[in-house]
Design a protein around this nucleic acid. Sequence first.
RNA 1: GGCGACGUAGCCAAGUGGUCAAGGCAGGGGUCUGCAAAAUCCCGAUCGCCGGUUCAAUUCCGGCCGUCGCCUCCA
Length: 468
Amino acid sequence: MALKIYSTLSRQKEDLVPLEPGVIKMYVCGPNLYGPAHVGHAMSYIVFDTIRRYLQYRGFQVRYVQNFTDIEDRIIETARSLNTTVKDLSEKYIARFYAEMDALNVLRADYNPRATEVIPKIIEIVAGLIAKGYAYPIEGGVYFRVTRMTDYGKLSKRSLDGMEAGARIEIDERKEHPMDFALWKASKPGEPAWDSPWGKGRPGWHIECSAMSMQFLGEQLDIHGGGHDVIFPHHENEIAQSEAYTGKVPFVKYWVHNALLRLHEDEEKMTRHLGNIVSVQEALQKYGGDAIRLFILSSHYRSPLTWKDENIIAARHGAERLRVALRDYEAGPSSNPADALCEQADQASRAFVFAMDDDFNTPRAIAQVYDLARTINAARDNGAPSNSVAYAQSILLELTEVLGLTLKGVSGPSEVEPFIALLVQTRNELRAAKQFALADQIRNRLAELGVVLEDAASSTLWKYTSQE
RNA sequence: GGCGACGUAGCCAAGUGGUCAAGGCAGGGGUCUGCAAAAUCCCGAUCGCCGGUUCAAUUCCGGCCGUCGCCUCCA
């Protein structure tokens, strides 16, 4: 069965058929580097990372490009207010972005171009659009002539007439049409600027993504992703300028947009402009990457989700149970390599693929993962053959890796481990001597210090617990 | 005003025109344990409201109510 993917352009699930067999060219809109990322960004990048991982799991070679917007009005503004340079500001947030995405186990893109490194390509496209009559210069700036594109609005399903009626923007009277958008902006003194045929200036808001995707992936892409809020005008304009420039349609085969994350208290979408933000850093400290990922993926990517502490904590508990299912297991006979447990694992794997093939239905896929974890735990409780358990665990690990879970658990300072081990050993001697009051006291005190003990049949396991 | 999405157990969240509904978290009960913990087993929903289509609707259509998103920078 073919993998189905929903495209915003057709508003339908379509069979995924790449432009080039076996290869997926994928571009995802990256962050604007004027500030730290929040969990809404994390949601988008986790969603697309999971799609990428799954496509790779299904055997596609994925070429994944995600940009950094390192030149834009707000960055200029922020740099100025912080008395730093645009360059330093963006470098700082790029470093932070990488660190945070690594912590979320988001795989690095094959390439992360910055807008400022494709200025020549941008100028080339803008000049080409002017030459073809799709754009016109005005006083050092260049605007795209939306009326030249008869299908303008096809992604967001709006008409120029309809948009004009509701437009709240202040209209630049110099433009031919209110909806014409800037491809190139004349710079003001003191702003970063590049030489161009139209004078000193910088790229407009949408052209960078067209330039970067063309330069690093080609003139047509398979998948272009981003948040739902970026459909209009950003992606609409990307289509217009790209298809006008190359003459190749479609610019993108499958437009994929994730629904937005809201913050519990006010139930409004989370955005830096509204200031109702939970930063990625803060979320990572509180919950860890696995809990965040599991929480995000427990709802379908096209459904809006609300950031609510108790739900992320619930996801953390779920992740813990998956972790337990992957614990080493040696007891039990080693025989019957192809028994019911192995069959159940294979079944879970098939069901997982079936769910993910249906427009990346992670909630259903995760249900399979939990089922398999329960099966493994139950089999282990019943003393199943160790090689069967190991096989089922290998399947479970494979599936959780597709979801980008590490299942590593909370780590603590390694230098205290010998001391904890000593306490555990001492306590077990007390237990053997039936000194239960003292033994329980040690266990309770360790728990207060963030170390939990679990007395198994033959040995005592201990682990650090997450805070709060 | 225009366009669009959603409303399923305490919370989160899949799903299907006809064994009247996955999974997670929380809660209750049992097993295991010196006691715990972990694990496991059992227990809960008739699917926003009102009509319609159908032999049959939670699933299709219409209306209503409610929540939310985009239309402006925004993942």
